[in-house]
């Protein structure tokens, strides 16, 4: 790796984890159009499941990760059930309530470390080699992030992706054209929960192997929202760009915490006001314009 500095390596790993989170949130929010604000709680569930499974049951990371994803997927299905009857703001309310409840229950439960945090989560092992340095952990995180992006593209271009888009544009019309609305809503929630569980588990096993319920508050949720909104809702590369940019800015402005959150908040409001499709939308717009220009020029040359 080019990065000499251990801290930079850490930031890169965090970026990869946030990319997984943002891409996952984009599936349920961008593709399927369900307004959920509880995504960060799913990441918390994934992280704590992974931690408990690996410390209390002694399973290795390679078994804890799928277990965490499975449990989070189930939790995602539970979060998705309210979406059968609720839309828009109501769904946001329900998921916000669920998310805050999860955090409060975790910080009130002694066996999960309570408000102090959960310690001594082991790093992944290959044979007898521990991947406890940020540099070696990179080779676990980055492939998973790339895989996540790849799967997200495959989902979008499959029939599931088309059903999601139909659902987003108009649930009634989608139902009329033979899309099983409930089934695809649940699928969207479960898929995005799998991403969240993966990201959560990766966060848990990253050195120093420590989790705190205060890392899963509304502030983190808004930061995650910013990644997706600023990058472009429903735009995969946009979400990735958003995750990278926001994580880097987040890290550079560590010392100006309060100004940072005020600015993040304003960026969200202003993005929604003036650039509702985010960076991804702008890039798309530009590319489409260029294509049209090229076609027009080709035509004028032909005639």
């Amino acid at each position: 790796m080019l990065l000499k500095n251990n801290y930079h390596q850490y930031v890169v790993n965090v970026i990869a984890i946030n990319v997984i989170l943002a891409v996952g949130l984009n599936i349920v929010k961008g593709f399927a159009g369900q307004v959920t604000v509880g995504h960060i709680a799913l990441a918390a569930i994934g992280a704590y499941t992974s931690a408990v499974v690996s410390t209390k049951l002694g399973l290795p990371f390679w078994a804890a990760l799928p277990t965490a994803m499975l449990v989070t997927g189930l939790a995602g299905a539970i979060v998705g059930i309210p979406s059968f009857r609720l839309e828009g703001a109501y769904l946001a309310l329900a998921t916000l309530g669920l998310a805050e409840s999860v955090r409060i229950v975790i910080s009130g439960t002694e066996s999960l470390g309570g408000a102090i945090g959960y310690e001594n989560i082991p790093p992944p092992f290959i044979g007898s080699m521990a991947l406890d340095a940020h540099r070696s952990y990179y080779y676990v995180v980055m492939p998973l992030a790339l895989l996540g992006i790849y799967f997200s593209f495959s989902i979008l271009s499959s029939d599931i992706g088309r059903a999601f888009k139909a659902l987003r544009e108009d649930p009634l019309a989608a139902a009329a054209s033979g899309v099983n609305v409930r089934k695809y809503k649940i699928i969207a929630f479960v898929l995005s929960a799998l991403y969240a569980g993966c990201a959560g588990s990766l966060k848990a096993h990253m050195a120093p192997g420590f989790l705190n319920p205060n890392d899963y508050t509304i502030i983190e949720m808004v930061t995650l929202l910013l990644m997706v909104v600023f990058g472009g809702i429903g735009h995969i590369w946009g979400g990735v760009i958003g995750a990278v940019l926001v994580t880097i800015i987040n890290d550079l402005t560590q010392d100006y915490y309060q100004y940072r959150m005020a600015i993040f908040g304003s960026v969200i409001v202003l993005t929604v006001m003036f650039m509702p499709r985010g960076i991804g939308g702008m890039i798309d717009h530009h590319l489409v314009r260029r294509r049209f220009k090229a076609i027009r020029e080709a035509k004028s040359r032909a005639t």
Binding site: G88, V222, L225, V229, M261, G265, I268, V269
Partner: peptide, 16 residues
């Protein structure tokens, strides 16, 4: 969705 997201953004702005 836009208004919900803007509301969350505004709440963080006001808080800070």
């Amino acid at each position: 969705m836009g208004m919900i997201i803007a509301g969350f953004g505004m709440s963080i702005v006001l808080q800070n």
